Simulated scan of single mutants.
Amino acid sequence: MRVLGLMSGTSHDGIDSAIVDWSPDGDVLTGAVEHTGAWPYEERLRERVAGALPPNPADLAEVCRLDTLIGQAFADAAEACGPVDLICSHGQTMFHWVEGGRARGTLQLGQPAWIAERTGVPVVSDLRARDVAAGGQGAPLVSYLDLLLLAGLPGPSGALNLGGIANLTVRDAGTAYDTGPASALMDAAVSAATGAPYDEDGRLAASGEVHRGLLEDLLAEPYYRAPPPKSTGKELFHLGYLVRAASPYGLSLPDLLATLAALTAETVAAEIRRHRLETVVVSGGGVRNPVLMAMLAARAGGARLVPSDELGVPADAKEAIAFSLFGWLTAHGLPATVPGCTGASGPRLLGTITPGDGPLRLPEPLGQGPHRLCLTTDSGLPGVAG
């Protein structure tokens, strides 16, 4: 079954896509990665998404408009990818409601009816809500894919995704959680100061110096000491949060970015050291920031940092590949959550299904999910886990 995964993360800069042809054989699931790509949001839509994110107010009229406009953008991205059997759309997270360490609700916009109408293909969507309803954090869902990828690695290993928020999956502990911001605060600082979406190749941060006083203030954030399972987002780590913390110091933009990169490196590395990980498979946009990666390597206690590309998963597309996998699992009646990672009361079948053209026809349900994963790319280079 060829499944298109669509994902827009906390950086809200556009839609990542991945087509994977999934084939089960006993307890091994093989995925041939046929396409990965990115579909940038139009600048006006990106501005509207940013304007509706916390702590900014957004009325129901704007929520309705964004649900439609994001859905239409996802439909554009899906149409550009070509024909598939199924689409799994994450949508755009606009609010993740956490109180007292418990996720109480989560909202992703991007009306799937627009995708189904445009493509004629069934769409799985709204994947986080069921895990939250079962007492989970609704994140990081990617831990299901991570544990399959890590299964065959020697020694204590983990998987790290550096998007807007950083999340870590620890194989031997069977746990996963958001460690804190990855690029969220850095991107907010760059956007406010220059209008650019991010610090390309970490060039500004490379010319700055870490300010220990601000770094210590930022590290005092209680979230970092909260026990997992836990999740966070731009509801906490947003521009207003950064302004309140950084304004007394009056730093230049390069010094501020160097300090924020150190914040990400310190908070992630503390968790890598705590679990005594020897190998960490790294994905997400942060992999392309050499300043962040160098700081992380220096603090990670000797852990080997391996780009996920080496396991057949393009670093920029891992989450889109994960959602392709979740769509396949849902279509086959299989749960796609790990209770020890999200905190849910049990594994759950995720998402709702919007039919495409004609009758909705799903495969026969499978009795059990895969225990191992084999991924290959179009170039024929294998990435084997398990």
Rank of each mutant, 00 (worst) to 15 (best):
V3F: 07
L6T: 02
G9H: 05
T10H: 08
S17C: 14
D21A: 13
G26Y: 03
V28A: 09
Y41G: 04
A52E: 00
N56D: 13
V63D: 12
L66C: 14
I70A: 08
A73I: 05
E79P: 00
C81M: 10
P83L: 08
I87A: 04
Q92A: 09
T93W: 04
A103S: 13
R104M: 11
G105M: 00
T106K: 06
Q108Y: 03
P112E: 07
E117I: 09
D126F: 08
A129P: 05
V132Q: 05
Y144I: 01
L148K: 00
G158N: 11
G163W: 02
N167E: 08
N167P: 07
V170F: 07
G180I: 06
A182L: 11
S183V: 13
A188Y: 03
V190R: 00
D201H: 14
R212K: 15
D217G: 10
P222W: 12
P222A: 13
Y223D: 01
A226T: 13
G233K: 02
L236W: 06
L236G: 05
F237C: 01
H238M: 02
G240H: 12
L251S: 04
L253I: 03
L256N: 01
E266P: 10
V268F: 05
V268S: 00
L277Y: 06
E278F: 03
G284N: 07
M295D: 06
A297D: 12
L305T: 11
L329K: 03
L334F: 04
P335H: 14
P339Y: 07
L350V: 11
L362S: 06
G386P: 03
